[in-house]
């Protein structure tokens, strides 16, 4: 799991609002892995994930003047990324194009020499199980257990009640547990 989402880099937001190109570069550098990570775990395809991740930053670039700063920059980016991913997943073209092997090109966890095969099998099963989750549950799971956001941050990013986040997360985890039972 990634480290939790900390405070925004100091002084970054005013510089972004002022249109400082160097600030935008710092912004992309700071959040590129988080945004790409969500997109990849949600879409399961690196090319598509990069396209969406790029679009997230472009939208942020265009809208930064309207960003009120009530949320953290990171939470705001997660919100944009989540919306774009869900929209993409809901598009008719995407439904037709998406195969059963979604998420299969997500890199496996570092293989250890001895347990490589077993670990690879477990990784594959885990990725497949995550890919099979309903989109809204998968998103909450990814934001919490992969990206390390708190319930409150997820609720803010997805404009949900924290209770809804908690129940969706619970159902997602229970569903995963059922699918991975044979590895217990």
């Amino acid at each position: 799991m990634r480290e939790g989402l900390g405070a925004d880099p100091p002084g970054l937001l005013p510089r972004l609002r002022a249109g400082d190109p160097r600030a935008f570069e710092e912004f992309v550098i700071a959040y590129q892995h988080r945004v790409f990570g969500v997109a990849l775990r949600m879409l399961g395809n690196r090319a598509e994930a990069e396209e969406i991740a790029q679009e997230v930053f472009l939208r942020a670039h265009r809208a930064i003047a309207d960003f009120r700063g009530e949320a953290r920059l990171g939470t705001w980016l997660y919100a944009i990324a989540s919306r774009l991913c869900l929209n993409r997943l809901a598009s008719p073209d995407r439904r037709l194009a998406r195969g059963d092997d979604a998420l299969m090109d997500v890199p496996a966890s570092t293989p250890d020499a001895a347990a490589a095969a077993e670990r690879a099998e477990l990784d594959a099963a885990l990725r497949a199980a995550i890919a099979e989750l309903p989109d809204d549950r998968r998103l909450v799971l990814v934001l919490r257990d992969v990206e390390g956001l708190s319930y409150e941050q997820i609720a803010e990013a997805l404009a949900l009640d924290p209770g809804t986040v908690r129940s969706r997360l619970h159902r997602a985890r229970m569903q995963l547990k059922e699918k991975l039972e044979r590895f217990a």
Partner: peptide, 23 residues
Amino acid sequence: RTVKLVRAMDPVHAPAGFVDRVL
């Protein structure tokens, strides 16, 4: 155990050159 497995997944990194392409 399931939660631990998911959390043990490696964080994903954006591809090389991503920042330049966004800029």
